[in-house]
């Protein structure tokens, strides 16, 4: 319980720190945000009204406090370019990104667990060597290039999947695959390493000597202990994707958080950028928090550290 309390405090403190860094990066670093948004050629009257709208006449700390309390009520302010509230914009884009990130990591796990276990079981075999060589190539592939190649093959040549846009679940297959393959390459190595470690332990020999069949030894005993490192690495991958599907969203024209952020950054819609960055950071921290709990339940020894 003490551990849990510490984690909650640390979660809140980190989120506050990130909010502060984001707010001051957007509001203080550029000097005058209104000037940044409209450009130096801006009409003085519009500049003045924008300063009014953004509340720039107030001291920066008051604005920060206002923004924070607004966020607690679920109010992220208004987008300058779209002239609408930010919260609904994010709410519409969020499911696309979440689905994409989760299916990317899920697919990576589906690919990597059987291959990784196969490598560990047949340690020293040709299968293992070939798999490890493939993982080196997989890790080097830029996922957006992989996406372009997948579109070329499955959409343009074979015509079996949609090339771009978000119309149905099938629209997510290729993007998820493009995200999954490089991550599966990393995970295969993790699965192989941790299963190999587990297989060398005494309790596996005990399980074998009491006559447990191979699949029980592997899936019930070895994989259970390997699960801690697999969960840790795939959890980190999930957090990276929550802020990092932007390139794949661009390749496949998916209306997720990344597309919204890219447009906001290029149009200098500072309130929207600020809202999106903090939302993504909060998601990432929440997943990290959940990951800690999962790791704790997988390995009770961690509770005493």
């Amino acid at each position: 319980m003490r551990y849990l309390r510490d984690r909650i405090i640390s979660f809140a403190a980190t989120l506050l720190l990130i909010s502060a860094v984001t707010f001051f990066a957007v509001n203080v670093l550029p000097g005058d945000p209104a000037l940044l948004i409209l450009g130096t050629e801006g009409d003085p009257e519009r500049l003045a009204s924008l300063r009014q709208e953004l509340g720039l006449n107030q001291p920066v700390l008051i604005r920060f406090a206002g923004w924070l309390t607004g966020m607690l009520r679920g109010d992220l302010g208004r987008s300058i370019r779209y002239s609408v509230d930010i919260a609904p914009l994010i709410k519409n884009a969020l499911p696309v990104t979440l689905l994409l990130a989760v299916s990317g990591v899920g697919l990576a796990l589906l690919i990597s667990i059987p291959i990784g276990i196969g490598c560990a079981v047949r340690h020293g075999s040709l299968f293992e060597t070939l798999s490890l060589v493939m993982t080196q190539f997989g890790m080097a592939l830029p996922s957006f290039w992989l996406g372009l190649l997948l579109i070329n093959l499955f959409a343009l040549r074979l015509g079996i999947l949609p090339p771009a846009g978000y119309t149905s679940g099938a629209s997510l297959i290729l993007p998820a695959l493009a995200l999954a393959l490089p991550r599966a390459a990393v995970l295969i190595r993790v699965v192989r390493g941790s299963v190999l470690d587990a297989l060398n332990q005494d309790y596996i020999r005990t399980a074998r000597s009491k006559g447990l069949p191979q699949y029980m030894v592997l899936y019930k005993h070895a994989l259970k202990n390997a699960a801690v490192s697999i969960a840790a690495v795939s959890g980190v991958q999930l957090t990276q994707l929550l802020g990092g599907t932007i390139v794949i969203e661009q390749v496949f024209g998916l209306p997720g958080l990344g597309q919204l952020l890219l447009a906001a950054a290029l149009m200098r819609d500072l309130p929207l950028v600020q809202g999106l960055v903090v939302t993504s950071a909060a998601l990432i921290l929440a997943v990290n928090f959940g990951l800690d709990l999962v790791l704790l339940s997988l390995d009770p020894r961690l509770r005493y550290e």
Partner: peptide, 12 residues
């Protein structure tokens, strides 16, 4: 994630 940082930098 570094890409978020990069977009924050692009906005500024």
């Amino acid at each position: 994630p570094s890409i978020l940082l990069a977009l924050l930098a692009v906005a500024i």
